[in-house]
Design a protein around this nucleic acid. Structure first.
Length: 842
RNA sequence: GGGGGCGUGGCGGAAUGGCAGACGCAGCGGACUUAAAAUCCGCUGGGCUUACGCUCGUGUGGGUUCGACUCCCACCGCCCCCA
């Protein structure tokens, strides 16, 4: 890496003349960040008649230092924020820290630093980096989720959800790492192993807190339609919510008055059911074997299955494990006896935890039937009759079709049968139509230290009692044992924390010792920014009413489901409780691509890191910003390239030198502004070029943030004006260079200030100027070049007056010497697209 | 298997029915320099041609159209999500 030799130039900051000094980014960055800070220029206005714009980027986890992905994400947001300020919006552009979470605890364990100390010092460092990059945040609204003045309100949110019945406690299976002696979140289990020590995880059943996100499943699904979000993110959420319409059916267990209830989306295949499968954990499975000779074997089977990762159990590729329970169920449609199995591929958490197995029409049932030699009876054939003759075993047909072997329903289509059979079920009280979702309730308790304590106490007399609102926050104690052992929360090791009194009866009570998932912290932070310093409420109704929803939310794809779904749920819950007027938090979502090196995402373990600090030190903030914007469309991944960065450095230097070249002659000159008529050919060319620049950059930004082509437009502008700059009058040159400085401002905020004030001698700040307007009329040239095609092949061009009628253009081509050779036989037909192309068929 | 996305020079990418390859990187040639770096100027998809030019070319094969990277059908390959 090359360090530019600015020091040599030793600026006394005078004498900016035709011999331009190099751009001293260090000096400019220091000077202007101080200036912005002193003037409080990035503060969102509290009361104003201006229309608002809430520009938000996903806040970072304070891991230590910024990585290139952050730089890209926050640069995108900053350009949007600065652009909108210049457009006259009252912009809210805040930043904060998703500051609870595991890495802080790991640092504590590995390096013996308190998680809080570690986190806060990381925040300090990263905040300085952000300032160096010129990000225009309103730091007065900064928040960190790990501080009591924030998590107090996270706890408040928990209490509100509890009051509403949306937070509840139940027993559930969790992932437990026997080596680390701790519970892990699902995301921290990779291929069934602990992400840290690679020990296979086990399932343990303990009491957990849940948020009832399933209560909003339908709203979460429906409201996706109206969001201005990338289609694939919406598709992923739809997929995750997984609505399916079907029916529940009750199968009587032979010789008893017990029933097995199943959920199926393929009721039309019920005549093909040849056995039943219960989840091994299903209470009936135990009941059916209890006291029989199968009991011992079944318990061993159950234990083995419990240790299997869910993903393996559901896989269509992994071999299925089953256990015959010795009993039979009766098919309510045809009275067939169906052997009842326990099978690993059926999960207690899905549907009713039991299925009717139709091996002819379901892949996994088919595999299971083959393994245990169970009959396979086809009852649906393709509608077009193909392969209907093929029989039995190897025909697995999973589509809808026409029913056969299905008693009175034979000959009906699957669609007809689904409806008729469901009606039959309801009439005979054997079951009913039902809608189910794949979405499960959100498990929010964590047996971890570094998180917001769940504000509940357990009293011997009164049972579970919520901490009263006025006693919040429940403060996280400072000294605990981070690694307390089997299924014990770190907070449980601090008696001073645990032992408390009951808010109801005043008797002895114990605090809940679990903390909340950090996704709870981040599910509502965008509300807090609207009113970040409010000590009496999470946020005021007025602030919420003015600022929400977030107009544009920018971040990585990895949150497509988790964070973005949780936030939508919390917003809907807050709306139902009357705390917000919006039912969706983020009107527009923009997902930026990854920054890669050597073809894969930068990561410490791969050793392919580019450190933003090095880039800042050697090239400056403007170059770093401009490069990340130029190199690829913002939604696509891009491969970091040192040479590409240097190309941008060259472009910035060319801009700087160009201003330097003209600075002396522009001193004291008034810019041309309106009186365009009097200009020479060259003046007029320059004004048109700058008008085109404004048009191009504006429309590229408005059209889904196409910053890469906006910057290409800037390059084209500079290339063009460099061709004839000496012929342009001083007044027009000044006007044009002022416009260019304004256009550059959101992209390269430091250099734009230097160009605007030092070079052009204007009053700072360029960021307080209005975004330049463009003149539609000036986009049109008097003469246009029209492409000439003969039989659809390009054969040359012709210059005609702008807007010339078809006849004129046609005649011009026919008269022109260059094309006569094609018209020996005249022409048959002609197509003309005004000002663009003319096509003759000869 | 289902859903979503993508496929254009040596590379990143432009062009969304109208001159394919804007802009940049890399490369080649030239100017400046004792020299190098930096900077500036020119060239740069393939093939044929001394040249004017001609011709092929946007993953593959078909189709619609005066005209297709762009729209339609089928296929191949890659990436992401879900199973």
């Amino acid at each position: 890496m090359k360090v530019q030799q600015m020091e040599n130039n030793d600026n006394n900051n005078k004498n900016v003349s035709t011999e331009a000094k190099e751009y001293d980014f260090r000096q400019a960055e220091e000077r202007w960040s101080n200036y912005w800070q002193q003037r409080d220029m990035h503060k969102a206005e509290e009361t104003t008649k201006k229309p608002k714009k809430y520009v938000l980027e996903m806040f970072p986890y304070p891991s230590g230092r910024l990585h290139m992905g952050h730089v890209r994400n926050y640069t995108l947001g900053d350009v949007v924020a600065r652009y909108n300020r210049m457009r006259g919006f009252n912009v809210l552009h805040p930043m904060g820290w998703d500051a609870f979470g595991l890495p802080a605890e790991n640092a504590a364990i590995e390096r013996n630093i308190h998680p809080e100390t570690w986190t806060l010092s990381n925040i300090d460092y990263m905040k300085q980096q952000m300032k160096k990059l010129g990000f225009s945040y309103d730091w007065d609204r900064e928040l960190a989720t790990c501080l009591p003045d924030y998590y107090k309100w996270t706890q408040w949110l928990f209490l509100k959800l509890y009051e509403k019945g949306l937070a509840y406690k139940k027993r559930a299976k969790v992932n437990w790492c026997p080596h680390c002696k701790t519970v892990l979140a699902n995301e921290q289990v990779i291929d069934g192993k602990c992400w840290r020590c690679h020990t296979p995880i086990e399932k343990r059943e303990i009491e957990q807190w849940f948020f009832k996100i399933t209560a909003y499943a339908d709203d979460l699904l429906k409201d996706l339609d109206d969001l201005d979000w990338p289609e694939y993110v919406k598709a992923q959420q739809r997929n995750w919510i997984g609505r399916s319409e079907g029916a529940t059916v009750r199968f009587q267990i032979e010789g008893t008055d017990k029933y097995i209830e199943v959920f199926t989306t393929r009721l039309d295949t019920i005549y093909g059911a040849t056995f039943m499968v219960l989840a091994p954990e299903h209470p009936l499975a135990k009941e059916l074997t209890q006291g029989t000779e199968l009991e011992e074997d079944f318990n061993a089977f159950l234990k083995a299955i419990t240790l299997k990762p869910e993903i393996d159990r559901l896989s269509t590729e992994k071999e299925k494990e089953g256990f015959f329970l010795g009993k039979y169920a009766i098919n309510p449609f045809n009275g067939e006896r169906l052997p009842i199995y326990a099978g690993d591929y059926v999960l207690m958490e899905y549907g009713t935890g039991a299925i009717m197995a139709v091996p002819a029409h379901d892949e996994r049932d088919n595999a299971f039937a083959k393994k245990y030699h169970l009959p396979i009876i086809p009852v649906v054939v393709p509608k077009d009759g193909t392969k209907a003759s093929e029989k039995g075993e190897d025909v697995l047909f999973t589509d809808y079709g026409t029913l056969v072997n299905s008693g009175p329903y034979s000959g009906k289509t699957s669609e007809e049968a689904l409806d008729l059979m469901a009606t039959y079920l309801e009439e005979h009280q054997l079951g009913s139509k039902k809608v189910t979702y794949r979405l499960r309730d959100w498990l929010v308790s964590r047996q971890r230290y570094w998180g917001a304590p769940i504000p509940m106490v357990y009293c011997e007399k009164c049972g579970m009692v919520p901490v009263p609102e006025e006693e919040l926050p429940v403060v996280l104690p400072r000294e605990v044992d981070y690694m307390p052992g089997d299924l014990v929360s770190p907070l449980a090791t601090d008696p001073a924390f645990v032992e408390t009194t009951c808010p109801k009866c005043g008797g002895p009570a114990r605090r809940e010792t679990d903390t909340m998932d950090t996704f709870v912290d981040s599910s509502w932070y965008y509300f807090r920014y609207a009113d970040a310093r409010n000590e009496n409420e999470a946020f005021s109704k007025d602030a919420e009413n003015y600022w929400l929803p977030v107009d544009i939310y920018i971040g990585g794809v990895e949150h497509a489901v988790l964070h973005l779904l949780y936030s939508r749920f919390i917003t809907k819950a807050l709306k139902d409780m009357g705390y917000t007027h919006v039912s969706e938090p983020f009107s527009k979502l923009f997902t930026q691509g990854m920054v890669t090196l050597g073809g894969s995402a930068m990561s410490k373990s791969k050793g392919n890191i580019v450190d933003p600090d090095d880039i800042l030190k050697n090239y400056g903030a403007d170059a770093a910003r401009m490069y990340t914007l130029f190199v690829a469309p913002p939604e696509k991944d891009f491969e970091w390239s040192q040479q590409g960065l240097e190309g941008i450095v060259r472009f910035l230097r060319r801009i700087w030198n160009f201003y330097g070249k003209h600075a002396a002659r522009l001193e004291g000159v008034n810019s041309a502004n309106e009186n365009v008529e009097a200009h020479s050919e060259w003046d007029s060319k320059a004004l048109r070029a700058s008008n085109r620049l404004v048009y191009r950059v504006t429309s590229d930004i408005e059209d889904n943030y196409r910053f890469n082509t906006a910057i290409a437009g800037m390059m084209e502008f500079l290339n063009e004006i460099t061709e004839y700059d000496d012929k342009v009058s001083s007044a027009v040159m000044k006007e044009v260079l002022e416009t260019f400085a304004k256009v550059l401002a959101p992209f390269v905020p430091f250099m734009a200030e230097e160009l605007w004030s030092t070079m052009l001698g204007n009053e700072p700040s360029v960021h307080e100027q209005s975004w330049p307007a463009f003149n539609e009329e000036l986009l049109e040239e008097a003469q246009v070049e029209v492409a000439v095609q003969i039989n659809g092949k390009f054969r040359g061009t012709i210059i005609v007056p702008n807007g010339a009628p078809e006849e004129d253009v046609k005649n011009a081509v026919l008269r022109s010497g260059s094309f006569t050779k094609y018209f020996d036989q005249g022409y048959k037909k002609c197509f003309y697209v005004p000002n663009k192309i003319i096509n003759f068929i000869v």
